[in-house]
Amino acid sequence: MSILVFVEQRDARVRSIVREVLGEASRLAAVLGGPVVGVCPAASDPGLATLGDAGAERVLLAAHEAFARYDAAGYTLAVVAAIEAVKPQVVLFGASAMGRDLAPRVAARLGVGLATDCTALAADGGRLTATRPVFAGKAIQKLAFPRVPALASLRPKVFAPAAASGRTATVEPLTVGFDPAAARAKVVRMAAAAGARVDLTEADVIVSGGRGLQDAGNFRLIEELAEALGAAVGASRAVVDAGWRPHSEQVGQTGKTVSPKLYVAVGISGAIQHLAGMSSSRCIVAINKDPEAPIFKVADYGVVGRFEEVVPALIEAVKQLNAQV
């Protein structure tokens, strides 16, 4: 038995989600049996031996110069080749832009089941079940897998990385018969520098603003609060539709699903489609002038008040706290 983990790299760096997935793979391996093996398509080794510390026993490196950037067809071949070599019982991906694109292709190639964006996995009696939000978080589905291997992608920020073990992983080459000349889809460039700022789905803290901010200019306060908290900025659909903020910042059913440690909602009413994207956050703070706003039903801590007064005071208080430590 073994568990295979897709090791995602970008710009020759292993992405942080990989450690979260390896953490869950290690916990499953304790029940289902190991080892935990990684597979990494890349142009060259992005330091895979260090993943031993995060729970991988070995990592298969599918090296090809065309793999410097994500290549859907090539990466699919690499993961399928690793599955043939390792014969895992379970294959795990991060539910990142890359993992969500890749995993269904692998599942279709092998004719097996895939559970997307899981928030828990369990191995009862040697059988894997996946727990995942459906209906944008309004319900939870539990899935079993009639076929082997079982494939799952894991929601970022939900699974804890394994405690550092100090081990190193062995890195082995994996040969993949990939011909980039035959590629019919190719990433030609990045439109904005990847990794320049934290993506919402990977942020530990998010400060989001809604229509209650009254105009785009007032988002300056949201940005200041975010900066003080080391947070990413989010938005409700109302302000994205109004053109105040880009769609990449929208949280909710038709935006991003986030699970940060702390989510601060300012001037957001808490419509069901917004809650769909953020109600799995660990701690929710709401600032809203209307005490009846539905956001207060899910907020761990609510402040009833006008953002014009509350937010500047909060920025000041957080700055003072930062100055103390």
Binding site: Y70, S96, A97, M98, R184, A185, K186, V187, V188, R189, M190, A191, A192, A193, A194, G195, A196, R197, V198, D199, T201, E202, H247, S248
Partner: peptide, 12 residues
């Protein structure tokens, strides 16, 4: 849209 940016893909 990918984390922190946009990937531009050419497809036949």
């Amino acid at each position: 849209e990918i984390e922190g940016g946009r990937e531009v893909v050419e497809v036949t």
